[in-house]
Design a protein around this nucleic acid. Structure first.
Lengths: 343, 343
DNA sequence: GTGAAAGCGCTAACAT
DNA sequence: ATGTTAGCGCTTTCAC
């Protein structure tokens, strides 16, 4: 019985099949795949030919069982919130898939149980379904990072452990303050002096961090920030109200926002008042969402280097998964500003 | 040696560990997990207690090896194109993750090699890393579906096999023509008579399908379509130019677009001419992207029922993965119209 | 209803 | 440099 030709699908070829065709032992085939250097060139060639001929690819389950590793990275996939402009996940996931694939890992998606945020992690961990996790939602008070640490689960966080100074897990994050500082400085250089901040509520650590970038940029130029800041929810509506209020009370000529969603609210207000973004008033958002890219006249926005984030995460992951593990520290990346018509 | 208490992580408990604690044999534990009906209630309870106590979860690799199935669904993850408003993937992936998880499957993401679109599929298939695929980019000329069919790989397509009438694989798709018809009728009911179509190039089968919905709605009301159609690339710029041209030549009072991206171009043109969307001219997009949701005054758009799509896909998948497989046919779902300020 | 034996396909350790 | 042996943890016969 041959497998060649136009045969109906059978069970895939195994190591033993290849060994037989190549006239070597199974172990030699295994070595050809995993430690080619151990083989004599001519033996290697013969084995590789056989592998090619049969279309052999090692059975993952068997390999996983033996090596106690799945080469799978778990990622809890939460979708972008509706009615916001925030769609980082899409870009990030793509970068992660690309990068980890290059490193020999695949990405396993699992849903989050809102009731029990650690449930999905626990399940995958105990069943040894994944080798490690990438934790993306490490916001204040989220128990995941701490939980993963106590479980000694290998994981890298996308996001700083804001709330936990004892955290020792590796993380990668983007310097929001630096991004907003970039944005603010950009407006200053465009001649603006009264630049307003449209941000999130005080409880949002990330929002406060971004706000600090605005404060820093303003102060370093000797510009006043008094009466120029507002904080609200991350909705278009809030951005609209906040900017209307700011325009009335403080007559800013520029707005720096904690998100593209809020920036859209600002554009909304400008439109209502017959003001033209980029001509009468400058607006800068955060995240370089698709909205920023397509809304007329184009929204200047802070863009997170998600490709780099993925690269750093995978680098950390590879470190964690070697024997013995190499624990890296935190990595803070700097975003860039994408300038468009709105400024 | 006990595993209980605050012990440092060891290798996870196995079937044998549970068996020992419960005072039964390994098979009985296996049965307790997979065929609880076979056990006597008291034995079952004892085993479940032991499972709980040890925090046992079956080792996936071992189970996969034995059952020759991974309970993993492969999905090639392509990111949303930059500079378009299209971000379906995010919503779809989430729905798929949720639904397949409920059915006991996880989603495995893999990157697409632009050079060789079938490479990733082939690899996963041969290494038996996934049980099935969900193929999302089954556009005209894409070899994936055909390739998967000849390989007899279990897969469900999100998208009709437009180009291949001999295709027998299960698919789920959204009726774009019906969606556009909905949109057009909506404008007619709002009193519009001269409704323009801003679509994609003729080669885009999906675009032609959507266009047919416009034609159908117009003709059924006895409205002329002459001079009211345009076709271009799926970019904001194209939508802008096309709508400018249409306004000059045919004075439409409403625009139905093949995508939110094109609709954004139309909004752009309206803004330039001092026309207000929703008051002077009505605009409808397609996809209900985040852009449609946040752009002022809100873009009316056709929304694909991606949650339902995921449900149908998983239903088909479950059929394919039973023994013997149950091959379903195609499923065509109807989108809905989300009405906002632009109409 | 429960237990014993076998083996899925692979790789680590050792022997040659 | 290549072959032999053993076993990862599980489920599937098949006895009892």
């Amino acid at each position: 019985m041959t497998r060649a030709g136009s045969w109906v699908p059978t069970t895939p070829p195994t190591l033993a099949d290849v060994a037989e065709v190549a006239g070597v032992s199974r172990q030699t085939v295994s070595n050809a795949v995993n430690n080619p250097d151990l083989l004599r060139p001519d033996t290697l060639a013969r084995v590789l030919d056989a592998i090619d001929e049969l279309g052999y690819s090692p059975n993952r389950a068997a390999r996983n069982l033996r090596t106690r590793s799945s080469h799978l990275i778990g990622l809890r996939f939460a979708p972008a919130q509706e009615h916001t402009a925030n769609a980082l996940m899409d870009r990030f996931v793509h970068s992660l898939v690309e990068t980890s694939s290059a490193a020999g890992y695949h990405v396993l998606l699992f849903p989050g149980d809102p009731e029990d945020p650690t449930a999905g992690y626990d399940q995958l961990l105990r069943s040894t379904a994944v080798d490690a996790f990438v934790a993306t939602d490490t916001y204040l008070g989220n128990p995941q990072a701490t939980w993963l640490e106590t479980r000694r689960a290998p994981f890298v966080a996308f996001g700083r452990p804001w709330d936990n100074e004892e955290a020792v897990h590796p993380w990668v994050d983007v310097d929001g303050a630096a991004g907003v500082e970039l944005a603010t400085t950009h407006l200053v250089e465009r001649g603006h002096q009264r630049i307003a901040w449209v941000g999130w509520r005080k409880e949002q650590v990330i929002g406060e961090d971004r706000r600090a970038g605005w404060t820093r940029a303003m102060r370093s130029r000797g510009l006043s920030t008094t009466g120029l800041a507002s904080r609200s929810d991350d909705t278009v509506h809030s951005g609209r109200e906040a900017s209307a209020h700011l325009l009335d009370e403080a007559s800013p000529t520029g707005f720096v926002c904690a998100s593209d969603t809020l920036a859209m609210g600002v554009l909304h207000t400008l439109g209502e008042r017959g003001l033209v973004a980029g001509r009468d008033v400058a607006v800068v958002g955060f995240d370089d969402s698709q909205v920023a890219q397509v809304v007329p006249p184009g929204l200047t926005s802070v863009r997170q280097p998600l490709e780099e984030v993925a690269v750093e995460i995978v680098r950390h992951l590879e470190g964690l998964l070697t024997h013995p593990p190499v624990r890296g520290g935190g990595v803070l990346l700097t975003p860039e500003l994408v300038v468009r018509g709105s400024s």
